[in-house]
Simulated assay, not measured.
Amino acid sequence: MRHIIIGAGAVGGAIGGRLAESGSEVLLVARGAHYEALRDHGLRLVTPQGTRTHRLPVAEGPEAVELRADDVLVLTVKTQDSIAALDAWAPREVAGTGGATAGEVLPLVCAQNGVESERLALRRFSRVYGMCVWLPAHFLEPGVVVADCAPLTGLLHIGRYPSGLDETARSIAGALEKAPFEAPVVPDVMRWKYAKLLANLGNALRAVCGTSGGDARAELLERAVAEGRAAFAAAGIEAVSDEEQREARGHKVDPQPLEGHPRGGGSSWQSLSRGTGTIETDYLNGEIVLIGRAHGVPTPVNAVLQRVADEFARDRRPASSLPFGELAARVGGPVPQAVIARGSAARDSS
């Protein structure tokens, strides 16, 4: 089995590097300066166990790869880049299959935040797998990925999309568990991904305001999550409980101090820090806004976080540069009590 990592940034680089360390065959796909650094100098993976440089095959896109029947495509680009990646890879012919395409025969794993990429993928690929990624990692410098957690690098629930189990999921999980990952194979992977979506609603807040705000910041985040729970309840969406998540993680994936590599923010903060011009907030806070609009649930906090983060990305404003008071003023008053009640009811029943 060869793992083709489509988007070898923070998550993709950590997964690819760790798989390579454990003996799996890996091919990295990257673009621009990151591709050039990987090609010329290898992947420098920094972990609590030390820094290793992996000289792995690397490609800029599918046209440079001869696909094989034993390939697994692991999609780790941000969701806003999913359609371009899926459209590029799905029609590629797979050697030794009598002309079948990747979309027809190869498994594709969506190792991404949010819940939209699996749906996008299923239009183009017949074998789609969801992966709930709990893998804190940083990618700010071309060729360098920092994954600072221990004793495990990450917790990666995997399952068939929209639901179910099969031998492919078990094989992928087996390869991951030879590396320092835990990869539970679950029949309901989207329940895990919807729960992770709630945990990612603070990404935009961290990206634009940093860690300022104190108790008011915590209250604002609680309001965003309450809106998410209320939207889920109205839509009949199930997510695993906070308790189940905490039990699964335990102290398996705890951040460790790494000299010379101070912790930054999450994936959205990194996008702003690198000045990419895009951000995944449309598929995090924007997902809650979408569900809320479809089911008559107001989501004012998430709507403001979505708009402000999009503005920051579009204008390439520096990460963490918005005073929290300015953001709070844009959000305005507290979320309606009816929304809080619906969110609490959804939490209590999960």
Rank of each mutant, 00 (worst) to 15 (best):
R55C: 07
G343F: 10
C132T: 10
R307I: 00
G343K: 11
V208P: 04
V65M: 05
A230F: 11
A338Q: 13
P255S: 09
R191H: 14
F312Q: 05
Y35N: 06
D188H: 14
R314N: 03
P180S: 12
I15L: 13
D87S: 10
Q256E: 12
C132S: 15
R92G: 02
G202T: 02
T278D: 08
M131R: 01
A8R: 04
L28P: 01
D148K: 15
R317C: 06
A294M: 11
T79W: 05
D81N: 14
C209G: 04
V115S: 02
R347K: 13
S171T: 15
Q80F: 12
L176P: 00
D254K: 15
F125T: 04
P262C: 11
R263N: 03
P257L: 10
C149G: 08
N113I: 01
R217M: 08
T276M: 04
A183W: 00
T299D: 05
E118D: 12
L305R: 08
G50A: 01
E182D: 10
Y194M: 04
V289P: 08
G130N: 01
R330M: 13
A234P: 05
C209T: 14
G114S: 10
L220C: 09
G264F: 02
F181W: 08
A88K: 01
G130D: 07
A20Q: 10
V145P: 00
A150L: 11
F324G: 09
N302G: 13
P184I: 06
F139E: 01
R191P: 00
R124G: 07
L122Q: 14
P323D: 10
L106P: 03
R18F: 06
I279D: 09
L290A: 15
G32L: 06
D71E: 07
E182Q: 14
N200S: 14
A64R: 14
P255K: 15
E104C: 06
A14V: 06
G213L: 09
S320E: 15
E222T: 11
H54S: 07
D166M: 12
I6G: 00
A33M: 09
V72T: 14
A111F: 06
T211K: 12
L56T: 00
Y35H: 15
L165D: 08
F324M: 09
G42C: 09
G174E: 03
P257R: 13
D242V: 11
S24E: 14
I4N: 01
A95W: 07
E118A: 09
R119K: 13
A199N: 13
Q306I: 00
R170N: 01
R217S: 14
G236H: 11
A216P: 01
W89G: 02
A111P: 02
T79D: 03
P255D: 03
I4C: 04
Q256H: 15
N203L: 04
F232V: 02
S268R: 02
R119Q: 13
L198C: 11
L327D: 09
L155T: 08
P336G: 02
P48I: 09
G50P: 07
R274Q: 12
I83H: 07
G103P: 05
A239G: 13
V145C: 05
L290W: 13
E182C: 07
L43M: 07
E21F: 04
G286F: 05
A150E: 10
G275E: 08
C132D: 10
Q306G: 08
W134V: 15
N203Q: 11
R249Y: 08
D81S: 13
T51I: 08
D166V: 09
Y194V: 04
